[in-house]
Design a protein around this nucleic acid. Structure first.
Length: 713
DNA sequence: TACATCAGATATTAG
DNA sequence: ATCTGATGTA
């Protein structure tokens, strides 16, 4: 397709976006305004204008969207597009780092640690330093370290700025953490970007090389970039200044990952002579849905402000459904799903969106009860499942023998008689000598380890060597097969009658399939590149829209997607907006943006549901509808008035608080009917009871809100 | 060393 | 309700 053909398929604003080729360009693209379309056509237009695809860099939010964009550009201008560079910040950086790892004291086969790996490592460091893990919570420390890395603050700098003893301790943990990663030739997610920035800052010739390579840079979802990502793009675009960013300040939802909304809000001040284009025509949603979404987002103060319009029909009004419990809510949603499905909407065009992953449980149960095929995206992430991580750990030590973390993970998995004592000695010795554990295993005879374990370790080592030799140049799938065979993994680990185990085996099979796919696509592939690709893969990347399964995911995962029908469930104050973010206006505004993202995923049908009670730690708490629902004009709803129950908390019963004792534990519960109290916990406001329902089900309830009446035995 | 059992803490979102 | 880590037992 030529330039004219490309432009012919766009509206005026979109055309304009294509034709600004040089200099900084800010595209403010509202929800559903054809953003992806504009970006792909703009890239095609650049290439059609004679720009070499090799000089184009496009940064996307997920690997999946990079892949899709590549396909679409290719269908517009053909095979030439293969020479572009496209990917997420993390994947692009990991490719750059592979080339230059030596300059930073790593080798190109470095391993990438995910969140869990990092936290495990921090846990270990904290216990090695004999620090109390109550004060130094590993997850919290990980967040602090991540933040420091994103701001390029070294442990030494942090130490200098510390104003409390705990901060000094954290500086030490941070220092140890970096040391350990380097010793293991490993990087965490934050390193991928911050080390690339360091590389470009430190080596002007490398910076110049990439500036000349990536003469045209495009960044999607710019509202969710953070400081270090800004820095990276700034460094890469320094010479040519052809930087095009696309985003929507109303959809900035990743501040917890350091996303800085200021990046987009002040882009035109940072980059002089910025051309700004607003895409305000919405092609996705019906007028009613758009109105609802707009009336929510106008309540935010921190925004550039834009008005979306649509030529589409008004469409159906929104559905608002109230339930008593999360189970009832989930069931009602499934009934609605059946209705839409009967009206001809394929299940694959529907999505249920929720604020927290934990909410997927009741939805999953209801889907099973109603026999509705479903797919849950995210939650327990595929590559974080134990069975997958273990096999990946075997691959890791083949690719990067210095990776002690992976070695320790599998040295006794499946169990082979190498216990705590033996691994501790190995670890201590390796640390002492500044070597990796695999390095010192040949000297094991000289260590203070019981003979039985020495034998086991030696057996493990010779197995490792066998796997290493047999898998040379055999492809990833074959390598995994050899690992499974040599370790007798499936037989030793799993019992084929246990349904949990069956699904674990299925996951391993899925891993084999994906490895096979990798082998086919990458003729010159190897374990190292496979691992780097895989460790940056997410569930949304793996997700394939299938026509006959309903999609369930968090609102965050749904970013960038669209569906014919959307169900936003759990729209309660304290859940959405989440209780943790009620403390400040900034945070509530982000929750509101998140709600806005949820609503704007819908094309034709939008249902919002909430429940009067909320499950928490197994107990049931009262709750009220989300404040965001109240920001939607009543007239946009099918059903009104929309609060069946009163808008306040259920009244607290004064007299009927049930106290159980050993000789009388039967009661009548207002919701569950006849129950047996098995045990009670806590006191006063926190008193909870573990009850046995006549259905055989057991659960926790909060006594404070349960009107219970004593019954004779 | 391996496995069972129990107490205690604990869930926001995610590359 | 579920997960983790500590303790006890074979």
């Amino acid at each position: 397709m030529d330039k004219i053909g490309i432009l012919a398929q766009l509206n005026e604003k979109q055309k304009e976006a294509c034709q600004v080729i040089e200099g900084p360009l800010l595209i403010l693209a509202g929800a559903g305004s054809g953003k992806t379309r504009t970006i792909t056509y703009r890239i095609a237009y650049l290439i059609a204008s004679g720009i070499n695809p090799i000089n184009i860099l496009a940064v996307t939010f997920t690997n999946k969207s990079a892949e899709e964009m590549k396909q679409r550009v290719q269908s517009l201008i053909g095979e030439r597009s293969n020479f572009m560079t496209m990917g997420t910040f993390h994947s692009i950086c990991s490719r750059i780092l592979r080339k230059h790892a030596e300059l930073l004291g790593f080798t190109s086969n470095y391993a990438i640690y995910d969140q869990k790996d990092s936290i495990n490592l921090i846990k270990k460091i904290i216990s090695n330093l004999d620090l109390p893990k109550e004060t130094f919570k590993p997850k919290h420390i990980k967040n602090i370290i991540g933040k420091l890395k994103r701001e390029l603050i070294s442990p030494e700098q942090y130490e200098k700025s510390a104003y409390s003893p705990n901060m000094l301790k954290i500086a030490i943990i941070y220092r140890e953490y970096i040391k350990y990663l380097k010793l293991n030739n490993s990087m965490d997610f934050d390193d991928l970007i911050s080390k690339t920035v360091l590389l470009l800052e430190k080596y002007p010739e490398i910076k110049l090389y990439y500036n000349n390579k990536f003469k045209f840079i495009l960044v999607d979802e710019y509202q969710d970039t953070n400081k270090i990502q800004f820095e990276l793009i700034n460094l890469l675009s320094d010479v040519h200044n052809n930087i095009c960013v696309v985003g929507d300040d109303d959809q900035s939802i990743y501040s917890f990952r350091g996303a800085n909304i200021e990046n987009i809000l002040s882009f035109d001040q940072v980059y002089k002579n910025t051309k700004t284009i607003r895409l305000e025509q919405n092609y996705r949603s019906t007028k009613n849905i758009l109105k609802a979404a707009s009336s929510v987002i106008v309540n935010n103060v921190e925004r550039k402000g834009k008005t979306l319009f649509s030529d589409w029909k008004n469409g159906e009004k929104l559905n608002l459904i109230e339930s008593y419990s999360s189970m009832e809510e989930a069931s009602t949603v499934m009934e609605e799903v059946k209705k839409l499905s009967k009206r001809g909407v394929p299940l694959g065009n529907l999505a249920i969106l929720y604020r927290t992953n934990a909410q997927s449980r009741s939805l999953e149960m209801a889907a099973q009860k109603f026999q509705i095929p479903y797919i849950i995206v995210g939650n327990v992430k595929f590559f974080e499942r134990v069975e997958i991580k273990n096999i990946i750990a075997y691959l890791n030590i083949l690719a990067n023998p210095k990776d002690n973390m992976s070695l320790l993970r599998i040295i006794n998995v499946p169990v082979r008689g190498i216990g705590k004592k033996a691994t501790q000695t190995l670890e201590f010795e390796a640390h002492h000598k500044g070597k990796s554990i695999l390095d010192i295993i040949p000297d094991i005879a000289s260590l203070d380890i019981p003979l039985r374990s020495i034998k086991a370790v030696n057996n493990f080592y010779s197995m490792y060597i066998r796997i290493k030799n047999n898998s040379k140049n055999k492809g990833v799938r074959k390598t995994i097969e050899i690992i499974l065979e040599e370790t007798d993994y499936i037989d030793k680990m799993y019992n084929k009658t246990d349904p949990e185990d069956v699904s674990r085996i299925e996951n391993i099979e899925e891993l084999l399939n994906s490895a096979n796919e990798y082998d086919i696509i990458n003729e010159n592939g190897n374990i190292e590149t496979y691992l780097q690709q895989v460790s940056l893969f997410t569930d949304i990347d793996r997700w394939k829209e299938v026509s006959d399964r309903i999609n369930m995911m968090t609102v965050h995962s749904a970013k960038g997607l669209e569906f014919t029908g959307i169900f936003v469930v759990g729209a309660m104050d304290g859940l959405f907006p989440h209780i943790i973010n009620l403390e400040s206006n900034d945070k509530i505004e982000e929750e509101r943006r998140l709600f806005y993202v949820a609503l704007t995923r819908a094309k034709e049908y939008l249902t919002i549901t909430y429940s009067r009670t909320r499950d928490f730690h197994g107990s049931i708490n009262p709750s009220i509808p989300s404040r965001f629902i109240k920001e939607i004009p009543e007239t946009l709803f099918k059903n009104k008035p929309y609060f069946k129950y009163s808008n306040s908390l259920p009244e607290e019963p004064k007299d009927n608080i049930f106290e159980t004792n050993s000789d009388n534990n039967l009661a009548i519960h207002p919701v569950f009917g006849k129950i047996r109290v098995i045990k009670t916990l806590g006191n006063g406001d926190q008193k909870r009871a573990y009850i046995h329902l006549t259905t055989g089900e057991k659960k926790w309830i909060l006594l404070k809100y349960a009107k219970l009446t004593r019954m004779e035995k």
